[in-house]
Design a protein around this nucleic acid. Sequence first.
DNA 1: CTTACGGCCTGGGTGC
DNA 2: TGCACCCAGGCCGTAA
Length: 288
Amino acid sequence: MPELPEVETVARGLRAVLPGRRILSVRLGKTDFIDDPAAIERELPGCRISAVHRFGKFLLLDLKRPTGSGVQFSLQIHLGMTGQILTCPPEARIPPHTHLFFALDDGRELRYTDIRRFGRIRILTNGARETLLAEFGLDPLEASEEEFDASIHSRRARIKALLLDQHVLRGIGNIYTDESLWRARIHPMRLGGKLKEEELHRLFTSVQQVLKEAIRLRGSSVSDYVDSNGQPGEFQLRHRVYMREGKKCFRCSTLIRRASVAGRSSYYCPRCQAAPRLARKKRKVHTK
DNA sequence: CTTACGGCCTGGGTGC
DNA sequence: TGCACCCAGGCCGTAA
């Protein structure tokens, strides 16, 4: 499941090979995950890729038209859960569920494969780009501690929901939420606004450490994730709670539990991460 | 306005 | 061997 560290790894890999390359032609398979497939086929051939960015969990390929004004726009890619984007020789075996092929001017091919097609691809014009950037929250690695605190402290929702909310922080998903909360020893059902200063500090530090370590290990490969060279990451070997239900906590040996919080499977240590009182059943309103 | 929740999209893995 | 069901993340509608 590509989250910030996985998308960052992919972005770095693509950044090493794509800038300067020209897209010669485009071939599409299934297109129900593409906003406007006809526009992709029409607009992209001939364009030169000028830069590769990560924005939250999105990849942005900046493109420059060959003609006249050299107008710039971007291809916005969200990998969803099972999306893979990589470059390879055109004769390489085509894996099932590969739906997008870009022939490049260095003789290689850029391909997009997505088993579930939960990913999304669309053309992003400059106007829409500003709108997109404004809609999303802080980049957790760029945010200051003050900004981080302010975005959590004013909120009443559960901390798990806040960390997952791309409009609060951009790029964090289920894996890195649970791993960060475990490191910070905070229960996923705690309310954002009720976290103490010390807890917010631990959380800020934990989020940044987890993301940085995961980037260093090139992401977590739990299902289909591979980088732009087709290689898996290694951070899944360092997971402390995610998918470890019934196994021993690395700190206290209590058995890790799983509960549904904010509609997501959440893994936590019931001893290290004390539950808030509100996590119990809602009090029934007593009449008479 | 904020928050919670359920349904939808798809198909691989699991369990019977 | 087959097959029904669960689940994943983002998004949307609805309700409180």
